[in-house]
Amino acid sequence: MNWINKNFLTTIISFLLLTHGQALAQEIPPLEDNQKVFDAQSFSKDIRQLTLQYRGELEDYRSSEKEYKILKQQYFQLETLASLEKSVRATQAAMVARANVLRTYIRLLRFHLLAQAGIELPEKQAAQQNLLDTLSKIEQHQQKLAEPLDKPSIANVAVEFKELFSEIEESVYRVLALLTVGKLQTVHDKALVLRHDMEEQLATAGGALKSAERKRSFDETNRVLSSLKGEFDLVEAKFSDSSDLDYKEVYQFANDRLSRIYSSLAKALLFLEELLKI
């Protein structure tokens, strides 16, 4: 009798544990999905914080630059040691403020790049690495500005910064072009999905006359959307060309092409809107 009771209890406990385990497994989403949600939230939070910081630093820079220009002019007019000291301090302060603005801007740009969908992963990773390298160089430049400088040291730092600035520009325009491509590519992908969904849902609606009219309209919309693939490929090819490293020029080229893509996408969306009224 005891043996039967024990067996019965064991069966019940095992059954309860098994059911509870299955329920838990259903409740907890996969780790990968959780991570994605966390990342998306984290990016938007960082972007918000950095945008505020960037605006504040830009304002500081404007006032520092204004002061630097006034004191520099005074120094050239007075040519005294006191005016030199004041102008050296104001120049260093303006340099520090400028470096802060550029550093925060690049950090902000990096988060925008990471959060943007529709960019090929290798290109995204390469552009991100480029930004990190540039960020490191800006931080080295900031370290030089941390110590008090004299007039000759300021001249040296100014020459070094000129070289650094062209590198910063290259990294930034590369990312700006990628961001525009990513945004438009995302809209293009979503427009294709929407067109497909609309075609499926409207297939049975209305009579034969409407169906024929809709089919012609869908075909036309499809032609507009399909033609964009070639345009995207051209922009892609320009980025993939390793010999072409002038990203400021690439950005200009991409912008011309992307403006055409933008117009075509706007046209396709108008077609889709019109299709719902047929």
Binding site: L58, Y61, E65, Y68, K72, Y75, S87, V88, T91, A94, M95, R98, V101, L102, Y105, L108, L109, H112, K151, I154, A155, A158, F161, K162, F165, E169, V172, Y173, L176, L179, T180, K183, L184, T186, V187, A254, N255, L258, S259, Y262
Partner: peptide, 21 residues
């Protein structure tokens, strides 16, 4: 928001030549 003619995050307009020359 994806309009290429309207850059949402433009390159900051900073003075490149800050020096005492």
């Amino acid at each position: 928001l994806a309009d290429p003619s309207q850059e949402k995050l433009p390159f900051p307009l900073v003075e490149i030549k800050i020096n005492l020359e």
